[in-house]
Simulated assay, not measured.
Amino acid sequence: MSKDSETDAFLISRQLKNKNFDIKLAKCRSEFECLLATNQFDLILCDHHLPDLNSEEALDIVRKKDPYIPFIILSGALPPGVAVILMDNGANDFLYKDRPERLVPAIFNALSKYKLEKERLEMQKQIQFSENRFRKLVESAQDIICILNREYQITYYSLSSIT
């Protein structure tokens, strides 16, 4: 890790600790993979250039573990178009290191979206469970059950109606 990267990591860590965030720092690929395997994170901040890992590779590793965890990329400079590619691949945000005032709002925004996505997925699971329970109940009923739409067309009928 270069001296500039160490300074950036220190300044960012200090800024986030002042906002009561718990920080774990990885300086290379093996540390990153170990931390990811042994911890549950609410959000990943990733420098675009680490000695043996770039943000695109880190994003791929994270997405294989959790497709929804917020992933924010920090960089001093990025080649044209790379940020767009990273966002298309699932990064939640991209920030330049020289704009530290954007970091905390970006984190809260990403965490808010993550919370909403988790709630949406949970609701989806509950709906699926309810639909399966309803289907089993209807299919085991002895009576004929028929559902019509507003045009009085049959949209569902129980199997007991054909036996």
Rank of each mutant, 00 (worst) to 15 (best):
89 N>T: 01
63 R>I: 05
11 L>S: 03
4 D>Y: 08
69 I>N: 06
38 T>F: 14
76 G>C: 04
50 L>N: 04
38 T>I: 11
140 S>C: 05
87 M>A: 08
32 F>R: 10
32 F>Y: 12
159 L>G: 14
61 I>E: 02
20 N>Y: 07
58 A>V: 09
26 A>Q: 10
21 F>E: 09
111 L>M: 14
100 P>F: 08
126 Q>T: 05
78 L>C: 10
73 I>F: 07
137 L>N: 02
25 L>A: 04
77 A>P: 00
109 N>V: 11
139 E>V: 13
18 N>G: 12
106 A>H: 03
76 G>A: 08
37 A>E: 12
91 A>M: 01
102 R>T: 09
67 P>Q: 12
1 M>F: 12
146 C>R: 07
23 I>V: 08
137 L>G: 05
88 D>W: 06
145 I>R: 08
71 F>S: 06
126 Q>H: 11
128 Q>L: 15
25 L>G: 01
146 C>L: 07
77 A>F: 07
103 L>W: 00
107 I>F: 05
160 S>F: 02
24 K>F: 14
56 E>N: 04
134 F>W: 12
163 T>H: 14
133 R>E: 07
71 F>W: 05
114 Y>D: 00
46 C>P: 01
13 S>C: 00
4 D>G: 00
155 T>A: 01
40 Q>E: 15
147 I>C: 02
40 Q>F: 10
147 I>M: 09
58 A>G: 11
71 F>M: 02
99 R>F: 10
108 F>S: 13
101 E>D: 14
91 A>R: 02
124 Q>Y: 00
40 Q>P: 03
84 V>G: 05
83 A>G: 07
143 D>M: 09
152 Y>V: 03
111 L>K: 05
111 L>D: 00
48 H>D: 08
132 N>F: 08
47 D>V: 11
144 I>T: 13
95 L>S: 02
88 D>F: 06
152 Y>G: 10
50 L>T: 07
21 F>N: 03
151 E>F: 15
53 L>Q: 09
33 E>D: 08
153 Q>I: 10
61 I>T: 13
22 D>Y: 11
20 N>P: 06
79 P>S: 15
69 I>W: 01
148 L>K: 12
124 Q>C: 03
143 D>Q: 13
136 K>S: 15
16 L>C: 03
75 S>G: 11
137 L>P: 01
134 F>L: 14
139 E>Q: 11
83 A>Y: 00
140 S>H: 13
20 N>C: 04
39 N>M: 02
7 T>H: 07
51 P>N: 12
17 K>D: 04
24 K>M: 04
68 Y>I: 06
138 V>R: 13
158 S>T: 00
41 F>N: 09
53 L>F: 15
141 A>R: 15
65 K>Q: 15
19 K>M: 03
13 S>A: 04
77 A>C: 07
163 T>E: 12
64 K>E: 14
3 K>V: 05
93 D>H: 00
34 C>H: 13
